[in-house]
Design a binder for these strands. Structure first.
Length: 129
DNA sequence: CGCCTGACGAAAC
DNA sequence: GGTTTCGCCAGGC
């Protein structure tokens, strides 16, 4: 690759120049895609990062097409504030979510992320909004 | 054009 | 202290 990842690539909302047509749906996908492997985040954190913290529901709702989006969105890294795999039931194979998380080094016990507190990845802190 | 739903979150009871 | 309900915002029918 010619360019080597320009250091911190802050996507910060998709506003190239007034082209926010992507709806915040794409924004959610972008943020989730930036989640490092072995890390997890919560819907509310993403929502807050986008500015819609008033409605974390929209974030999860945006994932409605998680299997319909172009680049694969690691929706399995997104869980609710409790660290529970709330969206696992929406995956093609519900167990796929735990499998992916376990593969990344994340332990899942009883549909809940073990050490969610340390694995928690805050987009607002990393991206800075 | 209007009602309902929706993978959360926090407050209220 | 656990359970329930409302609230947010936006899209789908």
């Amino acid at each position: 690759m010619a360019t080597k990842k320009s250091s911190s690539q802050k996507l910060k909302s998709v506003t190239p120049s007034g082209k926010k047509d992507e709806s915040f749906f794409a924004l959610v996908y972008d943020v989730v895609r930036q989640v490092p492997k072995g890390r997890v985040t919560s819907y509310g954190a993403i929502a807050a990062c986008l500015g819609t913290k008033l409605s974390a529901r929209m974030v999860g709702w945006a994932m409605n097409g998680c299997g319909n989006i172009k680049p694969k969105v690691p929706a399995h890294r997104v869980v609710n504030r409790l660290g529970m795999l709330s969206g696992k039931h929406h995956f093609k194979p519900p167990s796929k979510m735990e499998e992916l998380l376990k593969k990344e080094g994340i332990k899942v016990k009883n549909d809940q992320i073990v050490g969610f507190d340390k694995l928690f990845w805050d987009p607002v802190k990393e991206i800075g909004f």
